[in-house]
């Protein structure tokens, strides 16, 4: 798969939120404001690239030569857990006044289905490290492309008079449904050019 095809596939036609819904757990909390959604997207992108790098090295140089690829879940989870502890320790030391935000944000950005599934798929399906990093970056961009507009819609709706039954999570789900429908149409158009990654 070429680099352009990989980036288009991961960022758009297999968008992590709107096509596969691998989104962050507390979607409604993440999309409370566009700024928060952007921050979470950037944090998740950094996590995707870092975890992708480490897991690719582990997978190609340890698991495959020893023929124990069945342990890849454990390997990736250990990478995630150690990274989480390091981020919390180093972050608390460097930014002591942001300790509470770090304790809330780091697990959400790092230990989630998006980071896990994208990393697993890229490392197993894509041969080179450059492609893994590019794919991780593209997935992060795709996450931002989905989360920031949903957050913008939610922020806009908060200042409008809408029926009480549509307030809160319902407006988030409806915004996500409409964007997923739009992405689905784009996906249909691009599907003949780009082969699905997984």
């Amino acid at each position: 798969m070429s680099m352009v095809a990989l980036i288009m596939t991961v960022a758009l036609t297999q968008n992590v939120v709107l096509v596969h819904y691998l989104g962050i757990y507390q979607l409604s909390a993440v999309v409370r404001s566009p700024r928060r959604a952007l921050a979470m997207s950037v944090a998740t992108t950094v996590a995707l690239v870092w975890v992708g790098l480490i897991h690719w090295v582990m997978y190609r140089f340890v698991l495959v030569p020893l023929n124990v690829t069945v342990l890849s879940t454990i390997s990736l989870t250990v990478v995630l857990a150690v990274t989480l502890v390091l981020v919390l320790r180093i972050g608390s030391f460097l930014f002591p006044f942001y300790r509470r935000q770090l304790r809330q944000g780091a697990p959400a950005a790092l230990v989630n289905v998006t980071v896990f599934v994208i990393t697993m798929a890229l490392v197993e399906e894509v041969p080179s490290l450059v492609h893994v990093v590019s794919g991780a970056l593209a997935a992060g961009v795709g996450l931002g492309l989905a989360l920031v507009p949903i957050a913008a819609v939610r922020t806009e709706l908060r200042h409008r008079r809408i029926p009480w039954v549509l307030q809160g999570d319902v407006s988030v789900y409806l915004a996500a449904a409409m964007m997923a429908l739009a992405i689905q149409q784009i996906d249909g158009l691009l599907h003949q050019f780009f082969i699905p990654l997984y």
């Binding site: 819904y21 009480w164 789900y173 409806l174 997923a180 429908l181 689905q184």
Partner: peptide, 22 residues
Amino acid sequence: DSVAVGFLLLAVGRMLISTYRR
């Protein structure tokens, strides 16, 4: 099967729950 319909059903379900709770 699509994610859009999944979200839509979730939204409808939340509306029903909110109405019941209210």
